[in-house]
């Protein structure tokens, strides 16, 4: 059982993107290494099953708006999460001009 975990491949996103038999959501999951209990060990043959189930599944499972991709606004977390995340600007400090000035601006 341990073996199966170690066998998990590190996916190359460049290739994964153009593997048409893998649905984009699965691509992202694999690439990020998110554990997906159902398809832990059966990578190769699962792809095809995935392919078949996804097509009908995508329409029924997800709300239409999700699948639509016509949405312009990107996805954001909820207000609460964002608020706690951005209580200070440390993580984007390098991106802001003038933050080399007194660091006290963060307090």
């Amino acid at each position: 059982l341990q073996g199966t975990k170690n066998r998990r491949r590190k996916w190359d996103i460049g290739k994964l993107i153009y593997m048409d038999n893998v649905s984009p959501s699965t691509c992202i999951k694999r690439w990020r290494g998110v554990e997906d209990d159902d398809e832990n060990d059966e990578n190769a043959d699962d792809e095809e099953e995935d392919f078949f189930s996804k097509k009908d599944g995508a329409i029924t499972n997800k709300s239409e708006a999700d699948d639509d991709l016509e949405k312009f606004k990107p996805h954001f977390e909820t207000f609460k999460n964002l608020m706690s995340k951005w209580s200070n600007f440390d993580s984007i400090k390098s991106r802001l001009v003038g933050t080399s000035r007194p660091t006290s601006t963060n307090k």
């Binding site: 990107p74 207000f79 964002l82 608020m83 991106r95």
Partner: peptide, 23 residues
């Protein structure tokens, strides 16, 4: 709240973007 939310979203967008934003 809307003002604050959009401001937080801007920060989030900056953190998620390199040269261009997601949209």
């Amino acid at each position: 709240d809307i003002g604050a939310l959009i401001a937080y979203e801007l920060l989030e967008e900056i953190s998620k973007s390199a040269v261009v934003g997601r949209s």
